[in-house]
Amino acid sequence: MIRELVKGLGTTLRYMFKRPVTVQYPEVKRPVRERFRGRHELKRFANGQERCIGCALCAAACPADAILVIPAENDPANPRSPGERYAAVYEINMLRCIFCGYCEDACPTNAIVLEHQYELSFYDRRAAIYTKEMLLVPPDKGHGEPPPILQQLNRQPSPPAKIDL
């Protein structure tokens, strides 16, 4: 009886001097892997233009039917994206999304990227629908390079002719 008690407390004592495996979330956040699939972002090019061309291939690829794209025609004088077409409406229902990353695979311009943000909680279902304004990165956050994940996989997406990735 005593032996068992000592043995058990001994284990406790032993672990008191080891580094804990848990972290104090939310004060401490565990870093995620490079290829972690979290909340989506719609990227921009270095010149501030939206990468998304409204082709809706992400919506077609989405197994959960979480994406809504309603395209429109660019104003040639002031285009929002390269080429003739842009997404007038782009919405992702985060309650439906299963974070499979198929949208990212389907995207011909690397516009949609599943980033590392995973804190997604809502008080009502409406709030779970992320609009284009919420998904699109700020204009100064644009960059011309494809994201590392695609470089790593050496994938060459077939881009529209006018788009220089």
Binding site: I53, G54, C55, L57, G83, E84, R85, P108, T109, S158, P160, A161, K162
Partner: peptide, 11 residues
């Protein structure tokens, strides 16, 4: 052919 299928209405 420009291969702009993603923006082409015929796609």
């Amino acid at each position: 052919h420009p291969l702009d299928c993603p923006v082409c209405d015929k796609g």
